[in-house]
Design a protein around this nucleic acid. Structure first.
Lengths: 214, 214, 214, 214
DNA sequence: AACTAATCGAGACGGTACGTCCAGTCTTGGA
DNA sequence: TCCAAGACTGGACGTACCGTCTCGATTAGTT
């Protein structure tokens, strides 16, 4: 029988997360209450609290349920192209209509809930960062980057401006913006064995969307 | 008469903001309620709502009242040293015990309150960013940076990693971390007319605290 | 000059009472606040509190300002006809759209404000009752009522059922109801020198609207 | 298990009504707030509002909980004696220290809350009035009253003066006053086949407490 | 087939805070 | 000197959720 009024276990878990996403998208994740999720999911509050200790925990699980596979890095041999492809994909997700508001709400929760902050890092941020670091490491191993290159620092430098744009200035995150950052950074990051010296800022190397502003 | 029990206007404004800071520091800004601020400030809720439309607005004004003068940039002629000095100061503030938790709470609010987000940008982020941009512009005007150098982008690249550390990974923000970022970036940003060619990543030029990690 | 923005004394008093009546009629006397009266009258709250110590006091004065002359008794020699005429007039006022709601609100206030209760009695109830008593006394003096007739008691018996209808059952007060009460009462109250014996209840004497119900 | 900290339903209902009575008696029903009842009853406001939509509704239920059985009429065969007994009992209740202030407050509420007015009539006034009417009807059926006697009207005439005294003049309601009214009225109401003719007003027949005043 | 244990929805409960309204007092500045 | 305008504290309003807690009904997995 599949039409029993309330089924058990995983059934309920999934229904609650789906309701969280739908309702959050409709009314905003800030206005979303455990009460409302319970009512709309046809679940009791007890059932929700059995599984998630806070709204943040529920949001995080709901968000992760959207993106089980994660974003994978290509390795075409061209580091900059690979990073660009991956960051474009990440930006499409983070700044997209489904994921974006939820992610921002989650970061908001993380600012006053250490448990959410920790879980957010462990389950969403770190896995993605690890992939970037792995790709950079491959490049370093192949001599495309100097041996002393600080991979984690590079990752932070690549990611930071995006989060700044997303969380602080709250302007739209575009591929063009990503490209400008990559162009600016790789003038400095790239080793320059043959070339005389890469120009700083927007380097002469033509990026697809590069345009100076300052 | 100056000793009336409640003098008007500015008096109450200041008392409420002071209470917000004290109480927020004691119990945490997330647990801080308008109700509690009113009670501890000896003010009525009406008086608070007359001035601030939301907790976020109150937090922002309270935070700004801590830092009326703002941080000013030196201009010693040495761009990197000047940026380092200013960013150290900014980090001391942002990651310090008084300002830090409040600022994080405010960014949290900004994630679900567009008014707070806008005010945060206009009144806290932009003024500071403008100073960085001005210092960079002076350097560019003096030929220390290439003419096409994108000042706003550079500002985002300099700031981004710090906010990433503060808001996402929530690790401690140290001077040493700032130095590593500056070292890594300025290998690429700096124009290199005289120098042979700065190596990317952690450049060979010894920065004060540089240490590889990846 | 008559168009100064705020004139003094009696001017203000009258404006405030007029506003009380208008606003009370529009939104109901229960929902009427001192605040609203002040705002609509273009007066400050201070000015209102200077003249009236409570909403009840203001209501009472406003009500009395409607009815300065009061209701006067005719004395045509026919007691029952005179009482009927006067009570009809009183009922028209008390149950009318202008006076009625205000009077009911005032009685409501009187139930928890002894000052209002006292003022209501002294300034509204007693003066009217006195006229009824005076008319009854004239009748007694002329031998139309027995010498031991208790005038005040008769007044209470005549009035009581009307207030019961107005305040408790809240049904419509009609002339017909007044007549039925008078008919029933005067079968007992009237002395019967010549007649053999007046029938009790609805007496046989034809009243204009008499009709049995029980 | 019967000792759970808060058992359900009726428990809370009763505790809240008891608190309403106690607190109302102590501080006055006008000054009684839902807030205070909740606090003193150890209940949340929600719990109160779940059961009663307004202070008036709560007052009415609390009052009725004082008087579950109601007042019953004797039928000794002597109509006047029975009415007197019953009205004495009613007056003892209405003008007594427990019931009186509460009843007056309730009538006050009824003046601006039609729901309270309706409930007051249905649940308190009408049941009692019905008993009076029933007793009068028995008397009429036995020929003690004329066949055309209007029972409902008589009830209003009997009750009205008491409510007038209680609500308007706010003087003390005594058995003596009740007796004077009954004496005055029954001179007219009573059929007088055998008797010579009852005098109106205070009839010559000596009632137990009769005394002229006018 | 009946029993047991787990799980569910429903929703009552004490609480805390919300944002609003009004009471009654006080201050300021203009007429 | 009187006024309007309106700021101020304080208290209550009625509502929304929180997280905890019964309560029966339903279901699975034993016996």
């Amino acid at each position: 029988m599949t039409d029993t009024p309330h089924r058990r276990g995983a059934d309920r878990t999934e229904a609650i997360m789906r309701t969280t996403l739908e309702l959050g998208q409709k009314i905003g994740y800030a206005r979303l209450s455990m009460e409302a999720v319970a009512a709309h999911a046809g679940a009791s509050k007890q059932t929700i609290y059995r599984r998630w200790s806070s709204k943040g925990a529920l949001l995080l699980d709901s968000l992760l349920s959207l993106n089980e596979p994660g974003l994978d890095y290509p390795d075409t041999g061209d580091l900059v192209a690979d990073l660009r492809a991956q960051i474009h994909a990440a930006v499409d997700l983070l700044a997209g209509p489904a994921f974006g508001p939820l992610f921002k709400a989650l970061v908001g929760e993380a600012q006053h809930d250490p448990q959410v902050a920790a879980a957010l890092n462990e389950r969403l941020i770190a896995p993605q960062a690890d992939k970037t670091v792995a790709r950079l490491k491959a490049a370093r191993d192949q001599g495309q980057l100097s041996p002393g290159f600080d991979l984690a620092l590079a990752m932070a430098i690549l990611s930071g401006p995006l989060y700044f744009q997303l969380l602080i200035t709250q302007e739209q995150l575009t591929h063009e913006y990503v490209d400008r950052i990559l162009d600016a950074l790789f003038a400095g990051m790239r080793p320059r064995p043959p070339m005389p010296a890469a120009q700083a800022g927007p380097p002469p190397t033509p990026g697809p969307h590069r345009r100076a502003r300052g």
